[in-house]
Design a protein around this nucleic acid. Sequence first.
DNA 1: ACTGCATGCATTGCATGCAAACAATGCGCG
DNA 2: CGCGCATTGTTTGCATGCAATGCATGCAGT
Lengths: 215, 215
Amino acid sequence: MQNDVAHRRLRELILDGTYPPGARLTELDAAAALQMSRTPVREALRALAANGLVRPTGRGVVVVALDPADLEDAYQVRAALEALTAETAARRQRDGRIAPADLVALEDLAATTAGATDAGRLSEAVALNRRFHRRVAELAGNAIALDTLDRVWDQIHVSTLRSLAPPARHAHVTAQHTDLLAAIRAGAPEEAGRVARLHVLDTRASAGDLSARPA
Amino acid sequence: MQNDVAHRRLRELILDGTYPPGARLTELDAAAALQMSRTPVREALRALAANGLVRPTGRGVVVVALDPADLEDAYQVRAALEALTAETAARRQRDGRIAPADLVALEDLAATTAGATDAGRLSEAVALNRRFHRRVAELAGNAIALDTLDRVWDQIHVSTLRSLAPPARHAHVTAQHTDLLAAIRAGAPEEAGRVARLHVLDTRASAGDLSARPA
DNA sequence: ACTGCATGCATTGCATGCAAACAATGCGCG
DNA sequence: CGCGCATTGTTTGCATGCAATGCATGCAGT
């Protein structure tokens, strides 16, 4: 009950845009693509549907394509949860329950992310950015929040794939990362939560602008 | 791709305690219980795992049993999301985007819930309580938040099944419901969010106390 | 030309069979 | 008496086959 190759591979194919939002996918298609029989593919499709990456539709499934309103909703959820995890992480730091090495590693990651962003290595920057946010959430030590965030991140990722544009004001984004780290390091929960929420909502703003004028 | 009888029925069996937290479940067992072949059951099990109701373990799956720390985490997530939805609902009300009938219906539901709680009809009260919270979340019109909350509610529900004790201070709980409704009706987002968060965390306190001294 | 219907086809739902993995058990050997 | 190893049984992973469903296509009748 843990050999989900089909699930993992299909998730990859969706996240990297091979199956873009709105793409219809039948069991047979997917099975052919993965060179497997329909059985494991069916299971994977169910799991993906449960994770909100794919939506059942009459025959077959379609890759989710969040409309602007849904995307806004997703960002609201993400903001609420990242505020929670940032706040929790800061509290843990204040209580001395965070290993100094973890904080340093996180600061390194932030720097690497900023570097990739500045250099315009887009997809790498996106991946690093997600890893940064995920690490922050990990610091909170809330497995359920992390799990939930993974879902939301995936959903947002899929629906913002086409707008893989460089963040308009990436110096701003980098600065916000720095602020967040500072608040966590200082053990200031309130501040960390506030910064995290605003940062997510800022990201939304740019993604929203882009998704407002696509195909 | 939407005929999940197996998924729905297994979910029911887990939520109503037929398969209690920690129960091990093999595909064959479940298939026998549902009188189906293993194939649809496997799909259901994968979906349940994706929804966090069941956890893969070596052979077969076990029904999730959140330890007290995880339960606390789940309540934190729930509180953050219910604060968001309450806040959003209040904002919508303020902007006149909520049908008056919906608010009235919600107040009725709150009254019914209070009645069942007072009368000590425990399982009915639990069900009504969840419906009340769900309706509030629906008012926010955020489908993704609702979806996410459903997951978290399910997870919490499973792990608090054994402690089906009457809420210690149910007058208090009822009062908080009233306060929440008032804040929404008044179109006071900040207040609604605050009340919702505190209400959830209060609930947690009592559930936590109970789960601290179980089997 | 348009509507209604029937036929065919794509696609899903489910069962069954088989092979591989893993765990437990019992056996032989030291 | 204890330890290691082989054997057996359980359970999963996957493929295939078949039946049922619903959609699209084309034909006929108006």
